[in-house]
Nucleic acid binder design. Structure first.
Length: 270
DNA sequence: AGGCGTACCTGAGGGC
DNA sequence: TGCCCTCAGGTACGCC
């Protein structure tokens, strides 16, 4: 489900309700969601408090009074934040719950159960195997050039490689390539300087716009307040195969990279 | 280096 | 109605 814009919206939603909250109750209904194991997760979090919610790529990092929780939502992980007085979600609608002193709770639900939460004593951020944050100041056109120059990987696959650039997934990789007018099969190293810069700008623009729109809600994704994002209304190619290209009125097409669908416009993307 | 298959899970939707 | 297949926003691992 979630790529950088969705995870960033989750982060913002949680940052608005978690800091200062002390964990009084821990309910783990699906043990495999927590690491290193149920018992140590409970022990580490009982009586612990939330301090800050950060994001690195598609990972969430909760800085606690003692230690950190690293979380990846994978395809279908979802948080729901409830303030004191708001009704609890129905049983069966969550797989993990952290109840707070004084009321309110954080709920996690993960339909496909690929996601996880991991308690670590030290800050896990520096050792995450991730490339630069595409919206960081430090991520300059020169840094981007260093990442793609000389590479034979297809653009689509490079954009999905979190170790090269963090945060893009199947939706925004396709959307960025469409905006840049680039064929997903082009070897990354084949871009001329103007094309490199187009892609650099396209990635950053689409991510920024999607963050502003609250992310893309198609199947699973909801913000921690339970509301959907709206960027699905503004997608140019993703899941639009057979539809008319908004730029050239040609037909949006789809093909596979590995086992994943890549949507693109053959007329616009060269 | 790069690309592919498989695995981890559940549910929705299409074809018959 | 049911069955079987494919597909879904991610990533790790093993193999060629």
């Amino acid at each position: 489900m979630p790529e950088l814009p969705e995870v960033e919206n989750v982060r913002r939603g949680l940052a608005a309700c978690l800091p200062g909250k002390k964990i009084a109750e821990i309910e783990i209904l699906v043990p495999k969601l927590v690491r290193p194991d149920c018992d140590s997760f409970r022990e580490a979090l009982a009586g612990n408090s939330f301090r800050e919610v950060r994001r690195r790529g598609k990972n969430l990092v909760f800085r606690m009074e003692r230690g950190y929780i690293l979380c990846h939502l994978k395809m279908s992980g979802r948080f729901l934040c409830r303030t004191p007085g708001q009704p609890a979600p129905p049983a069966g609608s969550y797989h993990l719950a952290l109840g707070f002193s004084g009321g309110g709770a954080l709920y996690y639900h993960d339909l496909r159960r690929f996601g996880w939460l991991s308690f670590t004593a030290e800050n896990p951020e520096p050792s995450l195997p991730l490339g630069p944050e595409p919206l960081d100041r430090a991520f300059t056109p020169a840094a981007w050039h260093g990442i793609i120059s000389g590479r034979r990987t297809k653009l689509k696959q490079l954009l999905l490689d979190q170790e090269r650039i963090a945060g893009l997934g199947n939706i925004y990789a396709a959307e960025a390539l469409f905006r840049a007018g680039l064929d997903p099969d082009r070897p990354a190293g084949s871009l001329d300087p103007a094309e490199e810069e187009k892609l650099y700008r396209a990635m950053r623009a689409v991510l920024r716009e999607a963050i502003g729109a609250g992310g893309t809600s198609i199947v699973d994704y909801l913000k921690p307040d339970g509301k959907p994002g709206t960027f699905q209304e503004r997608l140019s190619v993703y899941r639009r195969a057979g539809g008319a290209c908004r730029r050239c009125r040609g037909t949006v097409s789809v093909k596979k990279h590995g086992s994943r669908s890549t949507y693109y416009c053959p007329g616009c993307q060269k």
